[in-house]
Simulated assay, not measured.
Amino acid sequence: MNILKKLFVVTVTSASLASVSFSASSANAPMDPYIETALVNVCKSVIKNSPISLKKTVRGYRLKMDTITEKLMCNNETPYQFALTHNADRNARLLKTGSVEIKDIAAVDAVEKYYVYID
């Protein structure tokens, strides 16, 4: 029984280390130029303080507002924080509204975020 426990611990540990190394390598992978341009344009639309312009940009790249609010990071800030930093209060109001989702604590995976830096 002791040998089975040790084998299980070694298997679980090696599997978790493999998943950590895989996620770290995918985080450092270069971004597709089209996706990078789309995300930069979305961040620029957040600054404009025009909800119509932001919605058009998001729809133009066939993205969803939920995806933008959950996964996009503009200069290490969420789109909501980025809008507040640049006094885009109308877009901040648009980005703040969202849906509430209940998940089991054990089933929650780390959300992949896309970091975009603009001047």
Rank of each mutant, 00 (worst) to 15 (best):
M1A: 15
N2E: 14
N2L: 14
N2P: 06
I3P: 05
L4M: 10
L4F: 10
K5W: 09
L7K: 13
L7D: 10
L7E: 13
L7R: 11
F8Q: 11
V10S: 07
T11M: 11
T11H: 03
T13N: 03
T13P: 01
S16F: 08
L17K: 07
S19E: 06
S21H: 06
S23W: 04
S23P: 00
A24I: 07
A24M: 09
S25F: 07
S25R: 05
S26M: 10
A27W: 09
N28V: 07
A29M: 11
D32G: 09
P33M: 13
Y34A: 12
I35C: 09
I35W: 11
T37N: 15
A38V: 10
N41A: 11
V42G: 01
V42A: 01
K44F: 02
S45L: 00
S45E: 02
V46Q: 02
I47N: 00
K48I: 00
S50A: 01
S50Q: 03
S50G: 00
K56G: 04
T57G: 03
R59C: 05
G60I: 08
R62P: 02
R62I: 04
R62E: 14
L63W: 09
L63S: 05
K64P: 01
M65C: 00
T67A: 02
T67G: 03
I68N: 01
T69K: 14
T69E: 06
T69S: 14
K71D: 01
L72P: 02
L72G: 04
M73Y: 03
M73D: 03
N75H: 07
E77I: 00
E77Q: 10
T78R: 04
P79H: 05
P79C: 05
Q81K: 08
F82C: 04
F82E: 03
F82K: 03
A83N: 04
L84Q: 09
L84A: 03
T85I: 06
D89S: 12
R90E: 11
A92V: 04
R93T: 09
R93F: 06
R93Y: 06
L94E: 08
L95H: 01
L95C: 02
L95I: 04
K96E: 09
E101Q: 13
K103R: 15
K103T: 12
D104N: 15
I105M: 13
A107F: 10
A107G: 12
A107V: 13
V108W: 10
V108C: 12
D109R: 15
D109F: 15
A110N: 14
A110T: 15
A110E: 14
V111W: 01
V111A: 10
E112D: 14
E112C: 09
K113F: 08
K113V: 11
Y114F: 15
I118E: 12
